[in-house]
Amino acid sequence: MRLLSAFVIGLIFGLGITVSGMINPAKVLNFFDIAGTWDPSLAFVMAGALAVAVPGYRLVLARPAPVMESRFQLPETRAIDRKLVLGSAVFGLGWGIAGFCPGGALPALGTGARDVYIFLAALVVGLLAARWVQARTTATARPL
C-alpha cells in the first residue's frame, strides 16, 4: 500500500511536469531568457503548484500525523547562511547551463532521451561529491 501510494503520487508529479512543459529544457531555458526568446509559461507552473500547495499544506499540517507514518518530517534548519545562498546561486548556474533541474529530469527519464541520462549521471556525481566533502569538513553555519 505504502509503495503503491508513493508510486501514484510520483506519477501525479511526473504527469504535472510533463503537461506543464517543465520536462522540456528548451522551454525552461526560454523562461530564463527574458531578453531573448522569452516564454513565461513556467511562471504559470509555479502559480498552479502554489495555488494547491499553500492551502493543501495548511490543511494537512493541521493534522496530528500523516496517514501512513507516525510523524511529519519537516526541515528543522532555520539559518539563512552563506551555504544556502551560495549553494542556491550555484544551482541556478547549473540550471541555466543545462536547462534541466532534478524535478524536471526525473520524470524525463521516462522519455528515454539521451541528455536526461547524461544530466542525471552528472547530477548524482555532484551530489555525492558534495556529500563526501561535507562529511569531511566541520559543518559550521556561518551567518551571512
Binding site: P25, K83, I97, D115, L123, V125, G126
Partner: peptide, 25 residues
C-alpha cells in the same frame, strides 16, 4: 523535449546542479 544545449553542457550543468542543490539544501 528539445536539445537546446550540447551534451557537454548538459553534463557540466548536471554536475554543478548536484553541488549547488546539495549545499543549498
Amino acid at each position: 523535449l528539445g536539445q537546446p544545449v550540447p551534451a557537454w553542457a548538459v553534463a557540466l550543468g548536471g554536475l554543478i546542479v548536484g553541488l549547488g542543490t546539495s549545499y543549498g539544501g
